[in-house]
Structures are given as C-alpha cells and as structure tokens.
Amino acid sequence: MRLINLVPSRPLALFLVLLPFIAVIIAYAIGSDIRLTANPQDKLLPAPSTIGETMVKLTTEGDRRTGDILFWQDTWASLQRLALGIGISGSLGLLFGLVIGLLPMARSLLAQFVAVLSMIPPLALLPILFIVFGLGELSKVVLIVIGTLPFIIRDMSQRTLEIPDELLVKAQTLGASSWVIALRVALPQVMPRLIQAVRLSLGPAWLFLIAAEAIASDSGLGYRIFLVRRYLAMDVILTYVIWITILAFIMDWLLRRASKRLFPWAEGGL
C-alpha cells in the first residue's frame, strides 16, 4: 500500500497526536535526571516534580509584601495589553482592508503605502515608542498594533479583492449602494478571514508583547520571565512559558470555534 493511502485508525491517531508531547516530557525528565544526579544543586534543568511544586506555589501563594498572587496579576496585565492591541489591530485592519479592497481610489492611495509600512521591523520602532508614549501601557499596546496591523490590512484587502466580481455586480443590479455592498456583501464574507488573520497574528502579538514587557514594565508575563532570569529560576521561567503556550493555544482554539459557530456557510473554505 502506498504511504499516502495509509490512514491511522482513531485510537492510533490519538496515540500519534500524544506521542510527540510524551516524547518531549520523557526526554526532559531523563536530561534533568542525568544533570541532577551529577549535581543536586543544578539549576538549569529542574526536576519535573520541582516545576510542579513551583507551579502550585506560584498560582496559590501571595506575594510576601503585598499578599497579591503575582502570577494571576501578570497574566491579567499581559492579557489586557494583548486583547487591546489585537482588538485595535483587528478593527482597524478590517476597516482599512475593506476600504482598500472595495474602493479603487483608496487602493491607489493606500495599498503601496501600507505595503511599504509593513516592511518596517516593528521592534526597531520600540525605542521611538518608549520615547514618544513613555514607558506605560500605551507604548506596549502601540507596539502590538504596529506589529500586527499592516499584515491584517494587507490580508483583509486581499480577501476583499478576492470576492468574486459577479457578487459585486449582482448586488449593484439589486440597487445596493457602495455602503450597502460593504456592509451586506463584503463585510460578512471577509469576517471569517478576519478571524483567520487574527489567529495568525497572535504569534507575532505575543512576541511583541513579551519583548516590550521585557524591556520596560512592572508587571506582565514577559516582565516576570526576564526578572527571574537574573536568579536562574528555571522552574519559574518554565512554568510561565508553559502557561503562555497554554493561553495562546486556548485563544487560537476559541477563535477557531467562534469562526465555525458564527460563519457556518464558510465551513468548506476554512
């Protein structure tokens, strides 16, 4: 039988899905064990049990000085910045994407400009943002927006352009104005693609968030990781990294679910 026709049965498929995860955990445990037997004081690869204890301690015990649980505070601060940044990018991206995609005048005016803007490395602008917007929340949110907006605008305008001409002509023969075509024909058709674009932008968004937090902040997941790096607290860093991964995965999963639930007609295309 050809390999391309070899399809795993359901239990085997589940096993195959879990296999790489299990393999990584086992590999880490072995590596950690080897180092710890050589030197019980080793800080680089803490034992899984140590990480587990740290996790419980981080998520339940309050700070010695204030009594607040820093872990949840960091999570809340980071998620707020991320949601604000992605929310602004998504809405502006949708708006500009529709305008560029639908109106030839706006396309001539903005398309090349956005294409050039998207080539600027956002992290190179970070010092400027800190200078202009200060070290507060604003500069972090703006970094996420600058980092993800050009991509979303370009993706949205491209998707809008891909709407078959027939549909736009059809809407015109039904008497629709440009506004109604944008609202009733283009907008609903690009909404599933917007969710897609936001899902793809989440990775860069996390990157910019953690970079901004690492450089100047007083709370946030990225801030904490770079803070405890000074003490070589690998157990804390790993806990935070795992947590960030889980958060990112849940967001992606929620968006995928939302897309399927809200736009059942687009099922086949996505």
Binding site: E166, L167, K170, P188
Partner: peptide
Amino acid sequence: GVVFQKYSVFPH
C-alpha cells in the same frame, strides 16, 4: 437583472 454561470447568489 443578471444571473451568471456561477457566484450568482450570496453564499453567506
């Protein structure tokens, strides 16, 4: 009024 070979109705 117009009807094309395809893409003539709104899929959403």
